[in-house]
Simulated scan of single mutants.
Amino acid sequence: MAVTKAILEKWMVAQKRHRLSDKQVQMARELGLNPDKLGKIDNHKQEPWKAPLPQFIEHIYFKRFKREKPETVKPLKQILKEMETKKKLQKEKKEERRKQRALSSDSAAE
């Protein structure tokens, strides 16, 4: 599934709001949780039976993947930076292909 900048920005907001670490955000993303709905499963101190959100994410991650943590943890800012560099590289390649086509069509017209 393609990750867009808007989705990553939602995760960044959720990370700040719920005080999650990069590891916990990655776990939640791998679990397929929705960043907009994390508030519903977060403990609001009125529900003492409910586990705090970071521990809840770690618990369900372990249940599903049988691992304590993801193999590689990437901060959201790093993922955004990689996406931007990849996009720039694709634009440069596309521009190069356009130049090549323009040159080949000019030589074919002569």
Rank of each mutant, 00 (worst) to 15 (best):
E47G: 02
R19W: 10
L53A: 11
D36P: 00
D36Q: 12
K10A: 05
S104H: 09
P48I: 03
E92W: 01
K88T: 08
F56C: 01
P48G: 09
V13Q: 13
D42M: 03
E9P: 01
F56L: 15
Q15P: 06
S107D: 14
R64D: 06
P54I: 03
E110T: 08
R97G: 03
K37C: 12
R98S: 10
A28V: 05
E47C: 03
R29D: 10
A6D: 15
K74D: 10
Q55Y: 11
K37V: 03
E95D: 15
K93L: 13
L38H: 01
S105Y: 01
K74S: 10
A51I: 08
V73C: 04
P52G: 06
L33I: 05
E96T: 12
L38M: 03
K50W: 01
A108V: 10
Q78V: 00
E47F: 02
A102D: 14
T72E: 14
K10C: 11
P54Q: 01
D36A: 08
K37Y: 10
E9H: 11
H44Q: 05
K87V: 04
K77A: 02
P70V: 10
Q15V: 10
K10D: 15
R17C: 04
K40P: 01
S105T: 13
L53R: 07
E92K: 05
T72H: 06
F65S: 12
K74C: 06
K66H: 11
W49L: 08
S104K: 13
I41D: 04
R67T: 13
Q46K: 05
M83L: 15
K81R: 13
E68V: 11
E95L: 07
Q78E: 15
W11K: 09
E68A: 00
P75H: 06
W49F: 12
L103I: 07
P52T: 00
K86P: 00
D42A: 15
E96Y: 15
E30A: 06
K40C: 07
P54G: 05
I60N: 05
A2M: 04
E47H: 09
E95Y: 02
Q100P: 00
K66T: 07
S21N: 09
R17D: 10
E30H: 04
R19L: 14
S105I: 02
W11Q: 14
E9C: 05
A51K: 03
A2I: 00
K69N: 14
K99S: 12
R98A: 08
V25H: 07
R101P: 01
L20K: 06
A6Y: 10
D22S: 09
I7C: 03
G39P: 00
I41P: 02
K40A: 09
K50L: 12
R101C: 10
R101Y: 15
K86E: 14
Q90M: 12
E47A: 09
T72V: 14
K77W: 13
W49I: 09
L33D: 15
K37G: 07
D42G: 06
R64W: 08
A2G: 01
Q15H: 06
Q46P: 00
R19H: 14
K66A: 07
H18M: 10
R98C: 03
L33G: 02
S107C: 08
K45F: 13
E110N: 02
E47D: 15
Q78R: 08
S21V: 03
I41W: 06
R29V: 08
L8M: 12
Q55W: 11
Q26S: 01
